[in-house]
């Protein structure tokens, strides 16, 4: 039987990775742990059969790493080198969190997320809003793509080179469509009994399996080693 990770384990993964991302790696051992942590979501993506994205993330991370350690040093100066160093730095720094977040958002269904949050006794206000935020990123991307296509068709993509106008022409239609999508979304949510006074039940039954515990244990261990090595050794 095909089994996915429990959403709570995924959220925990996101939490731990964010902590590790915040503390930057300074020694080879720390880099090892960081890389290992980055590889977990990539492997999970492979398991979910998202090969293209797994490959993309892997290549991005590997490239940034090779550039940072073998081509550029912290002594590099000059416009282009500084630019490259900056970009490799940001990729190395933030991509673990980004990849994990991407994995979690793409593979976690909204109902799974809702019932997981409910089980963890997070207030509804936070749960519903966060679920909408998560669900909404792809929508924004889609809408934005449509707006861009429309602008291209009319030949107004650059708005005569006026930056403020360029922003206005993109942002206003985007806001328009988002507001109306939001109204539809609330109507749909209310028909499903969201915001009622009764405790909601869920179709998905969440259950922590051994693999979830294993992942959580491993992540906790990695984080503990990371913090320990960074501050006490």
């Amino acid at each position: 039987m095909k089994r996915n990770l429990d959403p709570r384990a995924k959220l925990y993964m996101l939490f731990v990775v964010s902590i590790i991302v915040m503390l930057s790696a300074t020694t080879p051992l720390l880099w090892c742990i960081r890389t290992m942590i980055t590889m977990i979501p990539i492997m999970l993506l492979i398991k979910e059969k998202r090969y293209a994205w797994a490959l993309r993330f892997f290549v991005l991370y590997a490239l940034a790493m090779i550039l940072t350690f073998f081509v550029l040093g912290s002594g590099s100066t000059g416009m282009w080198k500084a630019f490259l160093t900056g970009y490799c730095g940001i990729i190395l720094q933030f991509s673990p969190a980004f990849i994990t977040a991407w994995y979690v958002i793409r593979t976690m269904k909204v109902d799974e997320f809702m019932s997981a949050m409910q089980k963890m006794h997070v207030p509804d206000s936070i749960t519903i809003s966060l679920a909408v935020v998560m669900r909404f990123f792809p929508t924004i991307k889609e809408e934005y793509g449509c707006i861009r296509a429309a602008m291209k068709m009319r030949g107004s993509s650059l708005a005569g080179g006026n930056v403020w106008k360029m922003m206005e022409y993109r942002l206003i239609p985007l806001l328009f469509s988002c507001v109306s999508i939001g109204d539809e979304l609330s109507a749909a949510a209310i028909t499903r009994g969201l915001g009622g006074k009764v405790k909601r039940t869920s179709v998905v039954v969440l259950e922590m399996k051994s693999i979830d515990y294993l992942l959580m244990l491993f992540l906790t261990g990695a984080a503990a080693v990371f913090v320990f090595v960074k501050y006490w050794v």
Partner: peptide, 10 residues
């Protein structure tokens, strides 16, 4: 809550 979510996302 949905309004908050949408505007936070944008």
């Amino acid at each position: 809550f949905i309004t908050i979510g949408i505007f936070t996302a944008i």
